[in-house]
Design a protein around this nucleic acid. Structure first.
Length: 553
RNA sequence: GCGCCUGUAGCUCAAUGGAUAGAGCAUUGGCCUUCUAAGCCAACGGUUGAAGGUUCGAAUCCUUCCAGGCGUGCCA
């Protein structure tokens, strides 16, 4: 338009402002030192939107309100693809979930797992190449304690445990470590043996890892999380790479500096509590490595071996400083160039209804195993009450999809940096911005096609869009592409949740007001096209969030 | 102390610097001989923590406060 200032065309804030509004005129007029309403009038004269817009009105200080032609909307609905793949696909590494396997998976792992998975799926939907990386904690002092303890209780007990009580094992091992000097010494020896790759110690470690990963896989399967065993690349995977990396860093002047016996990177923008530069410790004074070191090595691997264009990390907000330092150090030490996008996407804690950290009554972490059990139990009861006609097999399938969807959606729909409140009743409600509400809409649509004995994929009659509710539904359906692109750009799935919720509200209005199957062919078939497009959008959108749809519920 | 994050309706949450700050829950009142009422419609509800500033326009950007959370050299 005027060159520099963006046109800023956005969906209209209110129905009376039309379908889309142009906000850029006032800014442009300011630069050009002209009257905004006059400029707006000139713009309207220049625009050729004859086939697209029904009306363009100048409003307020210089807004343009655009109302689209029903024929244009209708043609878009019938001819455009649901999602157009990007023409500039990137290789995107998504680092998420990443539990420490010394402990059983608990509610603290939920947000990273669920949000990261949704973003990974959405990136794929948009046409990017996603490389999932499950950077599990599988190395370090905790494993010395655990393995020394398992040694003591014997292999049989270890087998029996099957990681069911991994939490209890770890707690017990830690207690022994505190109280029993002889045991503590054996634990330390175990760590050394592991670091030296002593075969017997490694064998024990591998055995334990197999069990722990089995447990992890079961949780992912129940949660419908797309992480596979081939996505695992834990801390231990970078062991061999750290030595050479440090050697390379030492070749660069002024990167690694020794301080109190530790090898550090000093970056002036990071200050500690005394106002001095806070070092990023790459190698401890005892020769050991820290998470900074492993993350640097992982970043190097992701650039050199995975050829990443973009790397996303999903962790809680406490690690903000860590990632700020990691990214800065990575650039300083030329591990990644500035053209590799490094993004940390932090999130807050999960709280209970009273605003306290979400824990069990006894104050322990809520295990994901128990959380999912409870979700399914609650959903089963609910569905039994709401729809007693479902047989028990159907009920099980529905309860599972509803329960898992509810838990995930509750988190995804309010992806924010601050803490969020975990509330069973709210997430399992069938009204409001919840998974069950969206799933119910999908089931209703499916039911229409089933009643009419119609193949959803064969609908091609352009909708008439003669009523306002149909128009509103159509306008919204056409925004799917742009919303997916927003999620891709910002890694924030709640944009997609809001879009799907608003879509569902508009569909429900349409469904209440407009009869479908009882109409004469042209109207009926056009409305079926709207239903078909809505169902496809809901299905694709929810799938991108990692949530299942149900033909019946 | 310093740094980062958060503060929006009674509650849970939205809002690319745009018009009169929106939803749901809760409360109150309507709508089922018709495609799933697990739904729809309506009413009620606000000094966006406070005060300044920038801007044609601020919940959003800047400054200073207030409140809460987190981090701050060998844990992750």
């Amino acid at each position: 338009m005027e060159g520099e200032p963006p046109a800023v065309v956005v969906p209209a804030g209110r129905p009376e402002y039309g379908d889309y509004q142009v906000n850029g005129i006032m800014g442009a007029a300011k630069r050009a030192r002209t009257n905004p309403r006059e400029l707006a009038a000139n713009v309207v004269d220049e625009l050729e939107l004859g086939d697209v817009a029904e009306s363009i009105e100048i409003a307020g200080p210089g807004f343009l309100n655009i109302r689209l032609k029903p024929a244009f909307l209708s043609a878009q609905i019938t001819t455009t693809a649901l999602i157009e793949k990007t023409t500039q696909p990137q290789r995107v590494v998504v680092d998420y979930s990443s539990p420490n396997l010394a402990k059983e998976m608990h509610v603290g792992h939920l947000r990273s797992t669920v949000i990261g998975d949704a973003v990974a799926r959405t990136l794929e939907l948009a046409g990017h190449t996603v490389i999932r990386q499950n950077h599990i904690g599988d190395w370090g002092t905790a494993f010395g304690r655990l393995l020394a303890f398992l040694d003591e209780v014997g292999d049989e007990a270890a087998q029996d445990a099957e990681l069911r009580d991994i939490e209890a094992l770890y707690v017990e091992a830690s207690e022994r470590f505190e109280k029993d000097p002889a045991f503590a010494e054996r634990a330390r020896q175990m760590v050394l043996a592991l670091q030296a790759h002593e075969p017997s110690a490694i064998a024990k470690w591998e055995h334990f890892m197999a069990l722990a990963q089995q447990h992890m896989s079961e949780i992912y399967a129940r949660l419908d999380v797309s992480l596979r065993s081939e996505d695992i690349r834990g801390e231990s995977a970078y062991n061999e790479a750290i030595g050479p990396m440090i050697a390379d860093l030492q070749k660069q002047d002024d990167v690694l500096v020794e301080s109190d016996g530790a090898l550090c990177i000093f970056m002036p923008q990071f200050k500690n509590k005394d106002g001095e530069i806070q070092p990023m410790i790459v190698q401890k004074s005892d020769g050991g490595y820290l998470y900074h070191t492993t993350d640097l090595a992982a970043l190097r691997y992701r650039r050199d071996m995975l050829h990443a264009d973009r790397v996303l990390y999903f962790t809680d907000a406490r690690q903000i400083l860590h990632f700020d330092m990691l990214f800065a150090a990575s650039r300083l030490a030329k591990i990644t160039d500035v053209d590799v996008l490094l993004e940390h996407h932090p999130f807050g804690k999960i709280l209970d209804k009273d605003g306290r950290p979400f824990k069990t009554r006894s104050g322990d972490n809520v295990l994901l195993r128990d959380l999912l059990d409870q979700a399914i139990e609650r959903a089963t009861t609910l569905i039994h009450d709401k729809n007693p006609e479902l047989d028990s097999d159907q009920r099980e399938v529905v309860a599972r999809a509803v329960a898992i969807g509810a838990v995930k959606y509750a988190d995804l729909s309010k992806n924010r940096l601050h803490d969020y409140t975990f509330d069973w009743d709210e997430m399992l409600a069938f009204d409001g911005n919840t998974a069950p509400y969206l799933q119910y809409a999908y089931a209703r649509i499916s039911s229409v096609f089933e009643k009419g004995n119609i193949d959803r994929t064969q609908c091609s009659e352009p909708p008439r869009l003669e009523t306002e509710v149909e128009r509103q539904l159509a306008v919204h359906l056409l925004r799917f592409q742009e919303v997916i692109e927003q999620v891709v750009a910002d890694a924030r799935p709640h944009y997609l949740c809001s879009f799907l919720y608003e879509l569902t509200v508009r569909f429900m209005r349409f469904y209440e007001q407009c009869p479908i199957l009882s109409e004469e062919p042209p109207i009926r078939d056009g409305r079926l096209t709207l239903c078909s497009r809505t169902a496809a959008t809901l299905e694709t959108g929810l799938k991108a969030l990692g949530i299942r749809v149900l033909a019946r519920m």
